[in-house]
Design a protein around this nucleic acid. Structure first.
Lengths: 192, 192
DNA sequence: TTGATTTTCCTAAAGCCTTTAGGTTACGGT
DNA sequence: ACCGTAACCTAAAGGCTTTAGGAAAATCAA
């Protein structure tokens, strides 16, 4: 019988689609085998195990987001850049909730260091170059931006904002405005 | 042979401990049965199913956090209240990572409405009373605070800050300072 | 073209988790 | 003491993961 043409890449891609359609938690070796109409054991020639599969999807998502981020940041600076990067993350999460969830997976240090995660860190710092922050404050700001993006998207995707009134798009712009105002006027360290 | 004295409550509590020790994902009906030295099927008299067990743990965590929050907010206002509430969440997450993870579980609307989640929303609004925000802005601010708390704690717990320099405690205070400054000086809606 | 080699995919099987059905047995109340 | 109601158990089916080892397609050489 003809072969299915399995490949780590094709499996990863199909896994990402599965994640977006059914949720990242539903990405299993078995489900993927069903998609390719192939026996489960066959996948193990291409992917080490279930964890490996999920990690590959995470890396794919990080890469895709980083690509979008780079493109969005080209030729932008200041608030423009901030808003662009923020939208990249939010839009990606809305278009690809499963992939976005995958990207939150905790990677072991070496994998993380070799991943597109470092590009993300660089991009955030690039945005912050548009503001006047001293070095230690820049790190605090990187963490704050990461927290807001990750936190907001997580809550919005999880339906945490479903039962309150103003629509989430409005809040999102106001949050970006607020971050811009904050970075433009970053408070000095408080005396104790 | 003597009975184990199972109860939905005891199972929930033990499940919460299991979550803190091994991670929320490792909370399974089987693991819990092993803890009580009881056959798996026995748990199904007290808990509807695996999902039900996890939901109960989530509700417990929400309740515990709300209790801490109420206590922390008593007699505080303004930045003091903001910092206190922020610390409640962060400290709880650090002490009880599994429970905290459980609290992120997406609940169906009725369950959520009957949960301590509403107390959390009330507490955040109470903190915001210490700042001068119009009604729609207050909602935006509620969402921003939720995002920052949830986002920061998620990243810190996930080890997202492990590989950068300043310690996370320092960043946390600066983030709270920043939020206070921001709320004190909330930017008006931007013209387009 | 054909034979050897490699790679792909399969069968088989063990282990763990979930969930349901139906049977015992311990305990509390009368 | 006895009786009914939990509480707990045995049994079994179904799903996912992972490994071991076999069969067949594709590749490449002579």
């Amino acid at each position: 019988m003809a072969r299915a043409g399995l490949t780590a890449e094709r499996l990863t891609r199909a896994g990402a689609e599965l994640a977006d359609e059914e949720g990242f938690a539903q990405v299993t070796v078995s489900a993927l085998a069903r998609r390719f109409d192939v026996k489960v054991a066959s996948l193990y020639s291409h992917v080490r195990n279930s964890q490996d599969l999920r990690t590959r999807i995470a890396l794919l998502a990080l890469e895709e987001m980083a690509d979008r981020g780079s493109a969005a940041l080209e030729g932008r600076a200041g608030k423009d850049a901030l808003a662009a990067l923020a939208d990249v993350y939010r839009d990606y999460a809305r278009e690809h909730p499963g992939r976005y969830a995958a990207a939150q997976l905790r990677l072991d240090p070496e994998t993380a260091a070799a991943s597109a995660g470092v590009r993300h860190a660089r991009m955030t710092r690039a945005v912050l170059r548009g503001y006047d922050l001293t070095e230690p404050d820049q790190t605090h700001a990187v963490r704050l931006l990461g927290s807001v993006f990750h936190g907001y998207i997580g809550l919005e995707l999880g339906g945490g904002f479903d039962h309150s009134a103003p629509d989430t798009q409005e809040t999102w712009s106001r949050v970006v405005d607020a971050l811009d105002a904050l970075l433009r006027n970053w408070p000095a360290a408080q005396g104790d």
